[in-house]
């Protein structure tokens, strides 16, 4: 589904990603871990198409097509979803209007008719149950005045609405208490299908108690320095990153 080869990216002339290689197949969950400043969020932003970052090398193929050549909205319509670490507040724009436009623009892109108001409402209701989000939130402005937990649930709610092929969740667990974390993680698990894939970017192992990854990658100084299975996350939890970093720094 996704194939990243030698991806390099920089911001304001400073190289953050120094050659990332990653392959994600349908049905898989990949976790990307690593210390602060290793480039995890940058990788997510580059895949989503944020223009602050300049891609200086490598390639990203998504379903056999050049992802880097697509606009931000094109990537989204093709099925790439980014769960934001800091979801943006949009005053005056209701969740319902926002989601309706998003869903219908995606449908239009795929040559489908827009959803009727009734069908859309029905979809909103059924999807809001997945993430146990209060239906009242959907009549409020996007993320405005939402608590930290509500914002993250709202990200998963949008993911449920848009049914992406590839979801990249950037530190979705940060700032969540244990209950919210469970709800978010359960939502992600419920949305998992054999034909979609998830990349979970996280700092802590605890999210991976709920979302069980097929692969765990350690990102350090802009490169993936180690890849393992879910046991690696447990090992990182007990031993920290130092042993990996030390090996890497000695190389």
């Amino acid at each position: 589904m996704l194939e990243i080869k030698g991806l390099k990216a920089s911001v304001e002339g400073k190289e953050i990603l120094k050659g990332i290689d990653l392959k994600v197949e349908a049905g898989q969950v990949h976790a990307i871990m690593g210390p602060n400043g290793s480039g995890k969020s940058t990788l997510a932003s580059v895949l989503a198409g944020r223009d602050k970052f300049e891609v200086t090398g490598g390639s990203v193929m998504f379903e056999g097509r050049d992802l880097l050549a697509m606009s931000v909205e094109q990537r989204a319509c093709e099925g790439v979803f980014l769960g934001f670490q800091y979801p943006v507040e949009i005053p005056g724009v209701s969740m319902a209007n926002f989601m309706k436009l998003a869903v219908n623009q995606k449908r239009k892109y795929n040559g489908q008719e827009p959803l009727s108001a009734a069908a859309f409402l029905k979809m909103m209701r059924s999807k809001s149950e997945v993430v146990e989000i209060d239906a009242a939130l959907t009549s409020r402005s996007v993320n405005e005045g939402f608590s930290g937990g509500e914002k993250k649930r709202n990200e998963i709610f949008q993911m449920a609405m848009l049914e992406p092929k590839l979801s990249i969740l950037d530190e979705t667990d940060s700032g969540l208490d244990i209950d919210a974390l469970r709800v978010v993680a359960t939502g992600v698990t419920k949305l998992k299908r054999p034909d979609n894939a998830t990349i979970v970017i996280t700092h802590y192992q605890r999210l991976l108690d709920y979302i069980v990854p097929d692969f765990v990658h350690v990102l350090y100084k802009g490169r993936i320095i180690h890849t393992g299975t879910k046991e690696l996350a447990l090992e990182l939890e007990s031993r920290g990153y130092d042993w990996l970093i030390k090996d890497y720094d000695n190389e």
Binding site: P87, V88, I90, F98, Y109
Partner: peptide
């Protein structure tokens, strides 16, 4: 906000309109 909306599949033009509407 524009990036956030575009990441959900909304074209830049529509995103601008929606933001102005909201404002």
């Amino acid at each position: 906000a524009l990036f956030y909306m575009r990441q959900r599949g909304i074209s830049e033009d529509e995103a601008r309109k929606l933001l102005v509407d909201g404002f």
